[in-house]
């Protein structure tokens, strides 16, 4: 070992103690970016390249420039799937999130003692395999024998066709709500748990009522987790794939088809790899734009004071 390397070592150490706080965050986040570059960026660039071509996966590619994207803008089935997807996303925000928040608040409140029963009970649906769950819901929504229609019949109400054009989106939303409410309860509970109890104690000393505490302590303190839940729900709804596929095969007449279903139908079933990639990119950009808006509205880019 030469004296040179000791000096170097000492220099390194000095440099490290000076720069540790600057370097360390990059080190901490680097595993994600390395894997992201290998397993996502490369594939995405390839998909972008494919989206400029028409190609069934074998034989020569035909370059069409932005042809796939312009075709997409006038493709009635794509527009239908876009509308369906927006419908599901709005539904998720209107049903799942408020329901999950209310359930979480109740479970977290001092009114309720047997908390774990509800936490586990609400979590059960997401543990059920999608395939098994869908079979159960096919039995529930069934025209002739379904639980719901039999229930309606016993009340003298004529049977409804839950998987037909008019109602199929509602049925899909019901399954999605059933499946994903519990996990959002869990997220909200984590958020509620992280609110320091002193805040409430101080408010009580000041004579603030339940509503005021909720409005001025709970809601603002839930902001980080609410933002998380909002973004995850939005991403999840825009990528909805399995439920409409298994319940109604995207039909009837494409009434339950999502963009992700259509992307699969074009890119795989119909072997239009280029067109499928174009749909994938448009979908990713839509989600990205909406997430950006959400983050901006929640002030995620403002510097924390």
């Amino acid at each position: 070992m030469s004296s040179e390397s000791i000096v170097e070592d000492r220099g390194l150490r000095a440099w490290w103690s000076r720069s540790e706080r600057k370097v360390v965050p990059y080190v901490f986040i680097s595993p994600f970016y390395i894997l992201f570059i290998v397993f996502s960026v490369g594939p995405l660039i390839y998909a972008l390249y494919l989206s400029l071509h028409r190609w069934p996966g074998t034989g020569p590619m035909r370059h069409v420039g932005l042809g796939n994207y312009t075709y997409l803008a006038g493709d009635p089935v794509f527009l239908k799937s876009l509308w369906n997807t927006v419908y599901y996303a709005v539904g998720a925000f209107l049903f799942i999130l408020p329901l999950a928040l209310v359930l979480a608040l109740l479970i977290n409140s001092t009114l309720i003692r047997i908390k774990s029963l509800f936490r586990i009970g609400y979590f059960l649906p997401i543990l059920t395999s999608t395939v098994a769950a869908t079979i159960m819901f096919l039995l529930i929504f069934n025209n002739e024998f379904g639980l719901i229609n039999q229930g309606l019949a016993s009340l003298g109400i004529p049977a409804l066709k839950w998987l037909d054009e008019e109602l199929v989106k509602i049925s899909v939303l019901a399954v999605v709500t059933w499946r994903y409410t519990g996990i959002n309860v869990l997220y909200f509970l984590t958020g509620l748990q992280s609110i320091p109890p002193e805040l409430y104690e101080a408010a009580q000393v000041d004579g603030a009522g339940t509503w005021a505490q909720f409005r001025y302590i709970t809601l603002p303190q839930l902001r980080p987790i609410a933002l998380f839940v909002g973004v995850v729900t939005m991403i999840g709804s825009f990528q909805l794939f399995a439920e409409p596929m298994l319940l109604a095969n995207g039909g009837p007449n494409d009434a339950s088809l999502t963009i992700a279903n259509y992307l699969y139908r074009m890119g795989f079933t119909n072997a239009k790899l280029g067109y499928g990639s174009a749909i994938g990119w448009v979908l990713a950009l839509i989600i990205f734009g909406l997430s950006f808006i959400q983050l901006y509205l929640f002030g995620a880019f403002r510097k924390e004071d």
């Binding site: 069934p56 996966g57 074998t58 079933t269």
Partner: peptide, 12 residues
């Protein structure tokens, strides 16, 4: 039900 996609282009 899936063969037709493999008949496009130059089949594999």
């Amino acid at each position: 039900g899936v063969i037709s996609r493999f008949l496009k282009g130059e089949p594999g």
